[in-house]
Amino acid sequence: EVTIKANLIFANGSTQTAEFKGTFEKATSEAYAYADTLKKDNGEYTVDVADKGYTLNAKFAG
C-alpha cells in the first residue's frame, strides 16, 4: 500500500491537502478523480508530479 498526497492549489490562493491510499494505480486514480469533482466550481487544473509520482500538485485555474 502506498499513499499519494494531493496538494490542491486554488485560484484564490487557498490550498487543501488530501491523501489517497491503496496500490499506486488506485491511489493515483482516486486523486485525479477527486480533482475532477472540484473542476465544476474551481475550473480546469494542471498537475505537476513530484516525489516520483507520490505527490501531485494540482493548480486550479479558477
Rank of each mutant, 00 (worst) to 15 (best):
T3F: 05
T3Q: 05
I4W: 00
I4M: 02
K5Q: 08
K5F: 10
K5E: 04
K5T: 15
A6T: 10
A6E: 03
A6Y: 03
A6M: 15
N7I: 14
N7R: 10
L8F: 15
L8M: 13
L8R: 01
A11D: 06
N12I: 04
N12G: 07
G13Q: 06
G13K: 06
S14H: 14
S14P: 07
S14G: 09
T15N: 07
T15H: 10
T15V: 15
Q16H: 14
Q16T: 11
Q16S: 12
Q16L: 15
Q16D: 09
T17S: 10
T17Y: 13
T17A: 08
A18D: 04
A18T: 11
A18E: 10
A18R: 15
E19T: 12
E19P: 00
F20M: 01
F20D: 02
G22D: 05
G22P: 02
T23C: 07
T23H: 06
E25P: 06
E25Y: 07
E25A: 11
E25W: 07
E25I: 09
K26G: 12
K26S: 14
A27M: 02
T28N: 06
S29I: 13
S29V: 10
E30C: 12
E30L: 13
E30N: 09
A31P: 00
Y32D: 01
Y32W: 08
A33Y: 08
A33M: 10
Y34E: 02
Y34P: 04
A35E: 03
A35Q: 02
A35D: 02
A35F: 15
A35M: 15
D36Y: 00
D36R: 00
D36E: 13
D36M: 03
L38W: 13
K39I: 14
K39T: 11
K39M: 11
K40P: 12
K40I: 12
K40Q: 12
D41H: 12
D41P: 05
N42D: 04
N42S: 08
N42R: 10
N42Q: 13
G43V: 02
E44T: 10
E44V: 09
E44S: 11
E44C: 13
Y45K: 01
Y45V: 05
T46N: 08
V47T: 07
D48R: 09
D48K: 09
D48G: 08
V49R: 06
V49T: 10
V49I: 13
V49W: 15
V49C: 08
A50K: 12
A50T: 13
A50S: 12
A50D: 10
D51S: 00
K52R: 12
K52Y: 14
G53K: 01
G53N: 04
G53F: 01
G53A: 01
Y54V: 05
Y54G: 05
T55E: 07
T55S: 05
T55L: 07
L56D: 04
L56K: 04
L56S: 04
N57W: 08
N57E: 07
N57M: 06
N57K: 05
N57S: 07
A58D: 04
A58Q: 05
K59W: 14
K59C: 11
K59A: 08
K59V: 14
K59D: 05
F60K: 00
F60G: 01
F60R: 00
A61T: 13
A61K: 12
G62Y: 06
G62C: 08
